[in-house]
Design a binder for these strands. Structure first.
Lengths: 249, 249
DNA sequence: ATAGTCGTTGCGTTACATGCAACGTGAGGG
DNA sequence: CCCTCACGTTGCATGTAACGCAACGACTAT
């Protein structure tokens, strides 16, 4: 561990709470002000901090630059990986990651159930929009007119007794999902399986993907599935943080 | 200037271009890999970088955190938010907000085009001074001697056939912008894109930021772009009011 | 098996970050 | 008007902590 670097990074973290003077900053890391100044100078040369007036330092523009470049680099799949795997090993159930691209909901990652009874699915497969929890989560984030547009073009093939079969019912469901912060698929796709899904959010709070947990009804009844909601939501939140989302208090 | 800190910050900058291995990184700053590792460890403990797999390092989540907090501090952004979003949804074109700080023009906010054809840009990025509409708007407000000073230090890299390439031409352009109350970039930065920009003013009438609208030429010819001027100026005025500017009659 | 390529660790050396004290500057008050 | 105080800034001597080195361990490929 590098001492001077450690001190400098502490300074940067301190500046996140607002502009500070040299004396304040040197106090925080408990060094002589001349030492703090040299660190700040170096940070300044890299545009990590900048002077505000004569007496104050604040965070610099390099941070915006770096943060946004890093966001472009990241793909959701890699970022969510750890959180999803942990949820998978913890519960033993099938975990999916899906995203909305080009008008379709696609599974972009999957962690298979450790139980002998598995469901069939595949990375890259398209999920039907009207009867899957992930699709509900992803579509619920679209702006209102777009949502209505999509809802009207869906072919509401009834796959089970519970399948939603009208645009109005579907839009009402999306509203529920939006406010609740999670979606369910109560055997709407396949008779013997039910799911819960939650949004993974990016830096600007937009939904970039959806995590879902799929469980055969023979292993767990609906109530038992809902009991896993907190765990799923925590997973989605952890994945969101990795995607640059900042939890607001 | 602190050597180790300088090296560490260089590493962070390097990681912005994508994940790198320890060897690659130590090569960049020309030190032994053990040295690079110690720096990375410290950066990691502050969440400035994180490991990806066993062999790669990438930028960490602290950057998102810091960048977002720093952005919150700049209140032009918040104040202009509504006006800009409305312009964006009304026209469907890319809208930028930029400000002049520490000798640089940087993009501090962005609303993406809703058209399938988008332009590439990024919050935090620096805008070239001689060939962007936002820079012209921001620099046109500087006092005369300062303007000349800046104009003489610009590196007039010709990027298209229309790029301004001399200080005199640039200063003349700034005068036009100043009296007209708006600036254009008629394919001076990129061949296939043109922009218009207008000033956002603060309480004392000073220019605190610039709003711009960027449109690919294939979607709209120059005349068509200029037809949006009243809309842009109204947006800039609305944002100015939010920043404390009082319209004079 | 063997060689090659990674990251990691312990250690001795000295470059470099540090604290100190003196200096410069600007603001406020007697 | 000068004095003082509170800042940031600079030069320098000192000792620490950052450094390169070399050996090691874990893996992969052939």
């Amino acid at each position: 561990m590098s001492q001077s670097l450690d001190r400098a990074l502490t300074l940067v973290g301190e500046l996140a709470t607002g502009p500070k003077t040299l004396d304040e900053l040197s106090g925080v890391i408990d060094v002589h002000k001349s030492t703090a100044m040299r660190l700040l100078r170096t940070l300044e040369s890299h545009r990590f901090v900048q002077r505000e007036g004569v007496h104050h330092y604040r965070l610099g523009t390099a941070l915006f630059d770096l943060a946004n470049r890093a966001l472009e680099e990241r793909d959701v799949r890699r970022s969510a990986e750890n959180a999803l795997r942990e949820l998978n090993t913890r519960t033993g159930y099938t975990v999916h990651l899906a995203s909305y691209e080009g008008g379709e909901v696609i599974y972009i990652d999957k962690y298979d159930s450790t139980h002998p009874m598995r469901m069939y699915s595949r990375i890259g497969r398209r999920a039907p929009l009207h009867c899957t929890a992930v699709a509900k989560v992803l579509l619920s984030d679209l702006p209102e007119p777009r949502r209505r547009e999509v809802a009207n073009t869906i072919d509401y093939v009834p796959l089970t007794a519970n399948t939603i079969t009208s645009p109005d019912a579907y839009l009402a469901e999306l509203d529920r999902v939006r406010t609740a912060g999670y979606a369910v698929d109560n055997a709407e796709h396949e008779d013997f399986i039910h799911c819960i899904a939650a949004p993974v959010r990016g830096a600007r709070g937009e939904v970039v993907a959806a995590v879902s947990m799929s469980v055969p009804k023979v292993l767990l009844d609906f109530e038992g599935l809902l009991a896993h909601l907190p765990d799923l939501l925590a997973t989605a939140r952890a994945a969101s943080v990795e995607c640059g989302w900042s939890p607001r208090d």
